[in-house]
Write a protein that binds this DNA or RNA. Sequence first.
DNA 1: CGGCTATTTGAGTCTAGTCAAAGCCTGTGG
DNA 2: CCACAGGCTTTGACTAGACTCAAATAGCCG
Lengths: 249, 249
Amino acid sequence: MLDRQSDIRRAPINLADSAIVGRCGDCEARHIGLCDAMPDQDLHFLANVAKRHKLVKGQCFVIQGDPARHFFNINHGSAKLYKDMPDGRRQIVGFVGSGDFVGLAAAQTYAFSAEAMEDIGLCRFDRSELRAVFGLFPAIERRLLDVASHELVVAQEQMLLLGRKNAIERVASFLDVWRHRTAACTAGEGALDLPMSRTDLSDYLGLTVETVSRALTALRKQGVIAIGADHRVAILQSERLTDIAQAAA
Amino acid sequence: MLDRQSDIRRAPINLADSAIVGRCGDCEARHIGLCDAMPDQDLHFLANVAKRHKLVKGQCFVIQGDPARHFFNINHGSAKLYKDMPDGRRQIVGFVGSGDFVGLAAAQTYAFSAEAMEDIGLCRFDRSELRAVFGLFPAIERRLLDVASHELVVAQEQMLLLGRKNAIERVASFLDVWRHRTAACTAGEGALDLPMSRTDLSDYLGLTVETVSRALTALRKQGVIAIGADHRVAILQSERLTDIAQAAA
DNA sequence: CGGCTATTTGAGTCTAGTCAAAGCCTGTGG
DNA sequence: CCACAGGCTTTGACTAGACTCAAATAGCCG
């Protein structure tokens, strides 16, 4: 655990080093996330306060405890949000992907850190500048409130998972939610695309890597899922998975 | 566990039965919570969409899964917010008190239930009507976004607690947070006022009643807290408590 | 003064954690 | 093309911290 201290995650590369590219109009995230709340002709208001960045896998763009000066909108790729304890224990509080908004959970300082799990592109907004845009386009603020409400729902569901579910229920819950999250994007019923490692999964589910692995094996032996040679997961019995996740059976 | 099914909590009294009393101007919560975002002369806009209610201990005013038609603002008293699983397992996702806003964590339906832990007074707002007030007073929406952001910070901290802390750290964390929450109200350094039972505490901390009790005893034996004959808790060494809560020592 | 309930304490069990090692992709270099 | 190093994942054996079941204790209220 403690080797995390010397990890790449502890040596974030300054965002200023990242390439700034492109404009809003042809952004891959134009019609998702924050930006979809703006009509085309007013998009330049957002563009004026947004800086586009590209980050490579492993780079941090939010550090827990730093002054919360920015919001972020992920354009492509995925990242993990997490909290660390002084002795190395880690809790991942969320995974974010294309279109997701990052940075709401902050008062004066960020309550979490954020690290790219693969190469990502994002837009960075200055909080105070974005706040000024609120006055002109209340739809933005409305959107953020909706996003925050939804995140609260998800957070409460995660509290139930962490506080009351056993290992298999936790893993089943994660797969069930992830399936629905990615079903919107990929129609195919093949293996799930899991950008996170088993270690990330364990830090998200409040378990150890070994326990996550054992739970996956148990689900595989029950015929609920299949695990590929590349460790990817395919869901074979989705109703059964949901039942296990919710302890409905 | 399963006896909860027949509990008073399962048979909520309809809010329509509750007494509706008073006006906003002389409300005990006038200068906290949502209402403080409104200037006196415009308070009647809120009053028009608010219904004041009084509830007795044990009454539910939000049921998980019901259509989310209202927001609530607690005027006095305290309540618990929780999620239940079909087999009776329960996770309390938050405690709320005077001035606190309830109902943000909802999409079409409520993600949680809410029950009065003591007699309480609250204001009920129709969501659609309150939304209409947003247009006239953006300060309300701004306030809600701030509230939601703060709740997200708290929720993430709770995920860390539930996912990665041991029993003593959980109990210490709770006492530490609760001390700060109530310190703003009561200057006295006496015993904490804990409106919730040990069972509620265990459902909040993801433990059993017995484990909570044992953790409290352990903290008492270490001299960090004292436990009164009425089971109330007094904090004797607050820095030590904080260190234990954060695993800093 | 009892009955009731919430809390605390005790004894034994079990789930998940820890420590250790093997297996298996991946990617690099010969 | 194959061998090998390295990291991630899986499996195994044992431990520990929290849970379960049971009982004792102590306020609280009629």
